[in-house]
Design a binder for these strands. Structure first.
Length: 866
RNA sequence: GCGAAAGUGGCGGAAUUGGCAGACGCGCCAGACUUAGGAUCUGGUACCGAAAGGUAUGGGGGUUCGAGUCCCCCCUUUCGCACCA
């Protein structure tokens, strides 16, 4: 063992050994409990950043812990390799998207290897491999067969000059990113997945995730699915043999309704206007409203509307209600039509005031008053009782709603209904770098699936992405032209590719059986490993990915592939690591070295704005490159720092000095281990009872057991790894204090060596989850030939952890007045007597009467005086 | 606007169920060792006060013997959703 700690040297050594010995590769072992620890697959952007370090350090710590606790730990990794940036790079720089992606994978994998994360690399998956996306296509076909997929027209961003569809990002600012042409909306037929069929299951399934998933993710998903219960009510349209159906959550307010408002796209609009003189005016206004709705910030829109000149009849009281269209009613939600109730809804109130549509008050305020409609200043949403509502006057909202829904049902003009915000998932993309949709269109037979034995439909290489005019695959005749699997006649392949969320839906099922070429995975293997016990990733995936993947799991269940509903038992959303920025009014963001000590800009001398902690990014010039950090102090120190900076789920701040502190700690461990390693390796151990030990020895042993307990419990429950690390530091400090005591006595005794051995035998394994390289190296130098990953997590004994003497706080009327020492077994009565006998307590009481004495065993005594 | 979370020293953060607020680290101060130290080791470090003592967990109320922790109101910050009928 070298005297000095050289992280680069030992990290390389252990990374090589782990790879050579396949240390972290696992297989199913019947009868051995599994633990599946998963970090979100990495998008192949080009380089790993500090967020990756944080994500993988958390997962790796837990994997190491579980492994040493005897679990069969599956800890795999893979690449989210399809997607837009590779394609964008191809168009800009003429690179091949595949080469771009493969290069990125090579670079990033190299970076991750240098962090020494304990992945089973034999299970690595890249979603752009035909062996992987073949099964996306297989799933697509199975779902198509079962009616879970369908085609419909849906709008896309469209560049009318190049005739290509654009992503939101490529169309940002309303201009095509390639040519600057104004982007329009164009309707294209596209593939949709009927996720709304699963809305209730997705919602109800959240209940079982309670406790394992962060509350805020669950509530975001609830929101996203957005189930609301209410009623649909049909209003007859005057002079037309039609009715308009509205959805309302508040049928009890229908007597207060003063208008029907339609979304501008509502099909009824043109029917009402047929032959009417104002037809052109209203339709062109509708067009304007539509454009307003499409503009990015709908929330800031002023309410606009126009009357269609039509009328509808309120089925409850036969009142004539004018039919309007307005920009705040959305065609996608509910029925695309609402009844306006100004006294109960703020939007309806604003709308009615603006256009002077009269309305009626239909409820009492919370304190029982009726405010006339003309005097209202805002809609009142906290109210008690209905008034002016016919036979239902005087009822509570709930009761009126129930009875009125029944009434509507009985009279055939309404029914209770549930509406969701969740919409079907459009999975078509008119792009190149993705999974080809495995469908063939034949003039005679319509859409037909590619037969299974012809999968995968391989994405053609060498496609020219710079030409416009439709999707990239449209320009590859050898891809497009095929024969119909049904009639054998000429047919064309679908040229859409799939949304990359399809890839990430089930990749972690594939890890369970990554090389299977018969099926997406062997259900037996998945039954062993799944569900994921701990999933770790960014909060940005709280809704999209984490809903789609739950949906996909339920689909796989319905295909008979898996037997469970929810794929992830525990979810941890890790916080970001941010860093201070330096902003010069003249030169914008500066690198730290461009700022003088007096906080001025080295270029122009102006004062620099400091102290703002922001997300790391290239443009803000505050990004920290993990590899540069590893080159300075090593991967162990880097991991140690990101975990120590704060609890995993919280945002943290990068600090150079904090990083140095982490490195300094590891050096400190190394030094003390080096000092004791020679002594411990030669002496044979024997068990020595506590009573035979001297104070410093007993204390160290006690602290070892206390700290093992606290770290173990923390790993099992809260996963607050920052406090685990502080406990390790405390243990290290204890060993230093012990060492000092030994120094004082001269040469270490046999007992000293034994107790030190116990301490290091606990410290080193507990260090492994955070700094595995140094832990392995120390473990080896202490005479162990096998990797730490195969050894046991230290056990603790409650008996040995117990304090002999305890310090008890004494309060008088809740204020701390004194402290006493007592034996650990002191009774309440003894503590009470000791407290009352204490001089400081006597002084504080000053002869007043003791009303009562509260004793919290082993902790505190509170003397209450009058 | 709605929903959620958070607010603790100079800084990052501890305090698991109401029971000694500030663990651990950074920074700072002092000492030792050193040719030297941005190394290492040791000690100190919430605030006010000379001390006794007092004051402190965003602000204000409350419950309790006792509140960072529970309840109510307010302020601030972050995140998510957003004309969702």
């Amino acid at each position: 063992m070298k005297e000095k700690y050289f992280p680069q040297e030992i990290e390389q050594k252990w990374q090589k050994r782990w790879a050579d010995e396949k240390t972290f590769e696992v297989k199913e072992e019947r009868g051995r409990e599994k633990f599946y620890c998963l970090e979100m697959l990495a998008y192949t952007s080009g380089r790993a950043h500090i967020g990756h370090v944080s994500n993988y350090s958390i997962g790796d710590a837990l994997s190491w812990f579980k492994r040493m606790r005897g679990f069969n730990v599956l800890h795999p990794f893979g690449w989210d390799a399809f997607g837009q940036p590779a394609e964008t790079a191809a168009i800009k720089d003429g690179t091949d998207p595949e080469k771009f992606t493969r290069d990125a994978i090579a670079t990033m994998k190299d970076q991750l290897l240098r962090m020494g994360i304990s992945y089973d690399w034999s299970r690595e998956v890249a979603t752009c491999d035909p062996e992987y996306y073949k099964w996306n296509q297989w799933f697509f076909i199975r779902m198509w067969e079962r009616g879970m997929l369908y085609r419909k027209l849906a709008p896309v961003n469209w560049c009318p000059k190049e005739n290509i569809s654009l992503s939101n990002e490529q169309a940002s600012g309303g201009e095509c990113w390639r040519c600057g042409t104004k982007v329009i909306q164009k309707e294209l037929p596209q593939w949709f997945a009927r996720i709304t069929d699963y809305a209730d299951q997705l919602l109800d399934g959240l209940d079982q995730l309670e406790g394992g998933w962060p509350e805020r993710v669950i509530s975001m998903q609830r929101n996203w699915i957005g189930r609301s219960r209410g009623a649909r009510v049909d209003f007859k349209v005057e002079d037309l043999n039609e009715s308009v159906t509205v959805f309302t959550t508040r049928i009890d307010t229908i007597f207060g309704s003063n208008a029907i408002i339609l979304a501008p796209e509502h099909p009824l609009v043109s029917k009402i206007l047929e032959d009417k003189p104002q037809r052109d005016e209203v339709l062109s206004f509708a067009e304007k409203l539509k454009q307003e709705q499409r503009s990015a910030r709908v929330d800031e829109l002023e309410k606009h509307g126009i009357s269609t000149s039509g009328y509808a009849i309120n089925p409850f009281n036969q009142e004539r209600l004018p039919i309007w269209i307005a920009n705040f009613v959305l065609i996608e939600y509910g029925t695309g039509a609402i009844m306006s109730v100004p006294s109960g809804d703020q939007r309806d109130f604003e709308f009615s005031r603006k256009y002077n549509v009269p309305f009626r008050q239909i409820k009492l305020t919370a304190d029982g008053r009726e405010i006339p409609a003309e005097e209202m200043e805002a809609a009142d949403e906290s109210w008690t009782t209905t008034v002016n509502t016919g036979q239902w006057s005087g009822l509570s909202s709930e009761e009126a709603s129930r009875l009125m829904t029944e009434y509507a049902e009985a009279h055939g003009f309404g029914r209770s209904a549930i509406t969701y915000k969740l919409r079907d998932w459009g999975i078509s993309r008119q792009r190149y770098w993705g999974t080809p949709v495995p469908m063939i269109y034949c003039e005679g037979c319509g859409y037909r699936a590619v037969p299974d034995d012809q999968l995968p439909v391989v994405l053609p290489k060498g496609v020219n992405l710079k030409v416009g005019g439709g999707s990239p695959l449209d320009h590859v005749p050898e891809f497009v032209n095929t024969t119909c699997p049904c009639c054998g006649g000429p047919a064309k392949r679908d040229t859409d590719t799939m949304d990359t969320f399809v890839d990430s839906n089930w990749y972690y099922f594939r890890y369970c059986d990554p090389r299977n070429d018969e099926q997406p995975f062997d259900p037996e293997k998945v039954a062993y490993w799944m569900p994921v016990d701990q999933y770790i990733g960014g909060i940005e995936h709280a809704v999209m990915h984490l809903i789609y993947t739950r949906y996909w799991t339920k689909v796989m269940r319905d295909l008979g592939l898996v037997k469970f509903d929810e794929p992830v038992t525990r979810l941890l959303t890790q916080g970001m690591i941010n860093k201070e920025t330096y902003f010069c009014p003249e030169h914008e963001w500066l690198f730290p070295e461009q700022v003088t000590e007096g906080k001025t800009c080295t270029i122009c001398g102006k004062e620099v704005i400091t102290g703002r902690v922001e997300k790391m990014s290239k443009s803000r010039k505050n990004a920290v490159d993990p590899i540069e950090m590893i080159n300075i102090h090593g991967g162990d120190a880097l991991r140690m720092f990101v975990l120590f900076a704060g609890p995993p789920e919280k945002d943290k701040e990068w600090s150079d000095t904090g990083f140095e502190g982490a490195s300094r700690y590891l050096q400190r461990v190394w030094r003390i281990a080096h000092k004791w390693q020679g002594r411990i390796a030669v002496v044979n151990s024997g068990s020595i009872t506590q009573s035979d030990l001297q104070d410093h020895q007993r204390r160290l042993r006690r602290r070892v057991h206390q700290i093992v307990r606290s770290i173990t419990e923390n790993f099992e429950e809260r996963l607050h790894l920052n406090t685990c690390i502080s406990s390790l530091m405390e243990l290290t400090n204890e060993i230093y204090a012990f060492d000092q005591a030994v120094e004082k006595n001269g040469d270490p005794s046999g007992e000293d060596v034994q107790v030190a051995r116990e301490a290091f035998t606990a410290l080193i394994p507990m260090l492994a989850p955070f700094a595995p390289h140094i832990a392995e190296e120390l473990w080896e130098s202490f005479g162990h030939s096998e990797s730490l990953s195969r050894s046991q997590w230290p056990e603790f004994s409650a008996e040995l952890a117990r304090e002999e003497e305890i310090e008890v706080a004494i309060q008088v009327n809740g204020k701390l007045r004194s402290r006493i020492f007592a034996s650990a077994g002191a009774s309440d009565g003894e503590l009470r007597e000791a407290a009352l006998a204490d001089d400081k307590v006597k002084a504080a009481i000053e002869g007043r009467d003791v009303a009562k004495v509260i004793v919290i065993p082993r902790k505190l005594v509170n003397v209450v005086v009058k």
